[in-house]
Nucleic acid binder design. Structure first.
Lengths: 127, 127
DNA sequence: CTGTGTGCAAACTCTTTGCATAAGT
DNA sequence: ACTTATGCAAAGAGTTTGCACACAG
């Protein structure tokens, strides 16, 4: 954290604990905020946003934009793709190395590919 | 339009004209609203939103969610994917039939794939 | 005429910002 | 002490909604 030029404040440490304790996670700012409250320490929502963005700039998180409005932050910063269950606001990784994209067209004149995002939208089976 | 159970009102007709006159288009509500104003007939932004959603439900448009916040509506309702130039808010189709996804993993127990969206994010080459 | 559509403004959701206070080093 | 972070509340962007008036059938 220090190497990223970020002061290890209480709030940042607490949020980092929540984020990186378990394996890969996908959180929205609001979800993380609630989680922090539930865990008993108070952080303002604004600070959660700030912190998430600072972590993102430091390369510790990446942003996954799977739906309008809400932004999801992913603790897995390697190159991979996502499942998304619409009705539940749930994002999770597609096991990496599995998906392969073939025949990507050349990008138009004067542009280059920044990255390729694949989102597989899921729905619950109604039985 | 009538077959979709939608009354062909002035506003709807005018918006449909703008949308379907030329080939495939990708518009945001705001962009279409401005375009209507520029074309000399007044439609309220709320009506543009309503109309776009009604057209979407009628299967005449599809929603492309490539970035946070803004929603893009696509007049090409066939199965295809998109290029997106971030800094210009520009969405356009990847020539269909070209891209192919291999090795898609099985969706988790109890879910099924609703659809697969591929967004190729582009950036302008700086020369 | 009757019912659906439109326009306006207010409400809403998610996110960002400004500024005084608090906390790290 | 000096500087950077935090918290709050207000502002902002995009979208939706409620309700009176207008218009298509």
């Amino acid at each position: 954290m220090r190497t990223a030029g970020l002061r290890p404040t209480r709030q940042r440490i607490a949020l980092a604990d929540l984020l990186f304790a378990a394996g890969d996670r996908h959180v929205s700012a609001e979800a993380l905020h609630e989680e922090a409250q539930a865990a008993g320490f108070s952080v303002s929502l604004a600070t959660v946003y700030n912190t998430l963005h600072q972590f993102t700039e430091a390369g510790m998180l990446r942003i996954v934009q799977v739906e309008g409005a809400r932004t999801h932050f992913d603790t897995n910063v390697s190159d991979h793709h996502h499942f998304f269950i619409e009705d539940e606001n749930l994002v999770f990784d597609i096991p990496s190395g599995r998906v392969e994209v073939k025949n990507l067209p050349e990008p138009p004149e004067g542009t280059e590919i920044a990255n390729v995002d694949i989102v597989v939208r899921l729905r619950r089976k109604v039985r």
